[in-house]
């Protein structure tokens, strides 16, 4: 290899490193979910709905909390086009509040089955929309302006405190037996163990 060509390659490598550094600088920072929940033992089946949602990592377990916050316009889908986190698991009766970050242009929150709808898209930082999920089930929703780009999310409402959608009895029926609270506290201990360990 001639020295000239080596020099060109070196220059190209330098450019590549610089571009990577700049891109990394742009994408890091903002929008780490506040109370990032742990993963469920069994991931709910969203039937491919979140297949093109690149910020969907797993269903964040936020069961047992009365209020849960989701960012609208967090990093994802090649820009600020994400719900953060994209998928969460909550207990029935939980109020979910979507909070606009002010990034990514205009957004809204619209359930695909019409259960909830924040109205016309808006951009203003600090805008909020809330909905209380009483009925167990899987709620899929999207931001209309960015749905094609993958700005979608899901709320998995489950009375089951022990695990995922198919772990044990009571997952679908929603009965609240005495054992459930015990199970729940055990689960909590395990969670703490996870966090500390």
């Amino acid at each position: 290899m001639s020295t000239h060509r080596r020099g060109v390659l070196k220059a190209l490598a330098l450019v590549a490193v610089l571009v990577t550094a700049i891109l990394a600088g742009c994408t890091s920072g903002t929008a780490d979910e506040g109370a990032a929940g742990l993963q469920l033992p069994n991931e709910p089946d969203y039937k491919g709905y979140l297949d093109n949602t690149d910020n969907y990592d797993y269903t964040h377990d936020m069961r047992g909390q009365e209020a849960v916050t989701i960012e609208v316009g967090s990093k994802g889908n090649m820009g600020d086009y994400g719900f953060g986190p994209a998928a969460v698991a909550v207990s029935p009766g939980t109020t979910v509040t979507w909070v606009w970050t002010g990034s990514g242009g205009t957004h809204n929150v619209v359930a695909d089955e019409g259960t909830f709808n924040s109205g016309p898209p808006v951009a203003e930082k600090g805008t909020t929309f809330e909905y209380t999920f009483d009925k167990p089930g899987v709620y899929r929703y999207a931001c209309e302006p960015h749905e094609a780009m993958g700005m979608k999310g899901a709320i998995f409402v489950t009375p089951d405190q022990s695990g995922g959608p198919s772990s044990g009895a009571g997952a679908e029926s929603g009965d609240s037996s005495g054992s459930e609270s015990i199970e729940y506290s055990v689960n909590r201990h395990l969670e703490l163990g996870h966090r500390l360990g």
């Binding site: 891109l23 742009c26 994408t27 990093k75 090649m78 820009g79 600020d80 086009y81 990034s103 990514g104 242009g105």
Partner: peptide, 11 residues
Amino acid sequence: YLYWTQSFVPF
């Protein structure tokens, strides 16, 4: 401006 507010590289 859109890139500034939305971080979408194609912009």
